[in-house]
Amino acid sequence: MNRNGLYAVIAILLVAVVAFAIYTYQQQNRPGVEVRLDEQGISIDGNG
């Protein structure tokens, strides 16, 4: 494999890692609502 091909593979891998990191960050920080039903009754927790 020549050098340009190697650079292309490295660039594609870096883009994939960055895209995965951004996706993971957005999934962890998205607003949502959690509803729980337990012995104390219903509790609703919104983190948005």
Score class of each variant (00 low, 15 high):
Arg36Gly: 07
Gly41Glu: 01
Ile44Ser: 01
Ile12Ala: 14
Ile22Met: 12
Ala19Gly: 12
Phe20Asn: 07
Asn47Asp: 12
Gln28Ala: 15
Gly48Cys: 03
Met1Trp: 06
Val9Arg: 05
Gln40Ile: 04
Gln26Arg: 15
Arg3Asp: 14
Asn2Arg: 02
Gly41His: 00
Ala11Leu: 11
Asn47Thr: 12
Leu14Gly: 11
Gln26Ala: 15
Phe20Trp: 02
Ala11Val: 07
Ile10Arg: 08
Ile42His: 03
Asn2Leu: 05
Asp45Thr: 14
Gly48Thr: 09
Asn2Val: 02
Ala16Met: 04
Leu37Val: 15
Gly5Asn: 07
Ala21Trp: 11
Met1Phe: 10
Ile22Tyr: 08
Gly48Arg: 01
Gln40Gly: 03
Glu34Asn: 08
Tyr23Ile: 14
Arg3Gly: 00
Phe20Asp: 04
Ala11Asp: 05
Glu39Tyr: 07
Val35Gly: 02
Gln27Asp: 10
Glu34Ser: 09
Arg36Ile: 00
Leu13Phe: 10
Val33Ala: 07
Arg36Lys: 10
Glu39Pro: 01
Arg36Ala: 03
Tyr23Arg: 14
Asn4Lys: 13
Ala11Cys: 02
Ala19Ser: 08
Arg30Gly: 15
Ile22Phe: 11
Gly41Asp: 01
Pro31Tyr: 03
Pro31Met: 06
Arg3Lys: 13
Ile22Ala: 13
Met1Thr: 01
Ile44Asn: 09
Asp38Tyr: 03
Asn29Phe: 12
Tyr7Lys: 11
Leu37Glu: 04
Asp38Ser: 13
Ala11Arg: 00
Gly46Cys: 10
Gly32Glu: 09
Ile22Cys: 07
Ile42Leu: 14
Gln27Cys: 06
Arg36Cys: 00
Val35Ala: 00
Asp45Ile: 11
Ala21Gly: 14
Arg36Pro: 10
Leu37Met: 11
Val35Leu: 10
Ala19Gln: 01
Glu34Trp: 02
Asn29Cys: 04
Ser43Cys: 03
Val18Cys: 05
Gln28Asn: 15
Asn29Ala: 09
Thr24Ala: 13
Ala16Trp: 07
Ala21Asn: 04
Ala19Lys: 01
Val33Pro: 02
Leu6Trp: 09
Asn2His: 00
Thr24Phe: 11
Gln40Ser: 13
Ile42Cys: 00
Ser43Glu: 03
Arg30Cys: 13
Glu39Ser: 13
Ile12Cys: 10
Leu37Gln: 07
Gly48Tyr: 11
Ile22Thr: 13
Val33Glu: 08
Met1Val: 10
Gly32His: 15
Gly32Arg: 15
Asn2Lys: 09
Asn2Trp: 05
Glu34Asp: 04
Met1His: 12
Leu37Gly: 07
Asp45Gly: 02
Val18Ile: 15
Gln27Met: 12
Ile42Pro: 06
Ala8Asn: 06
Tyr23Trp: 15
Arg36Val: 08
Leu13Cys: 12
Val17Met: 07
Ala21Phe: 09
Glu34Leu: 13
Ile22Trp: 05
Phe20Ile: 03
Leu37Asp: 09
Asp38Val: 01
Ile42Gly: 01
Val9Ile: 13
Tyr23Ser: 15
Gly5His: 04
Gln26Phe: 14
Ile42Arg: 08
Glu39His: 06
Ala19Trp: 08
Gln40Met: 06
Val17Gln: 00
Gly41Thr: 01
Arg3Gln: 12
Asp45His: 13
Gln28Cys: 05
Pro31Arg: 06
Gly5Cys: 03
Tyr25Gln: 10
Phe20Arg: 00
Gln40Leu: 05
Val15Leu: 14
Gly48Met: 07
Met1Lys: 11
Gly32Phe: 11
Met1Asn: 03
Gly32Asn: 12
Ile44Asp: 05
Ile42Trp: 04
Ala16Asp: 00
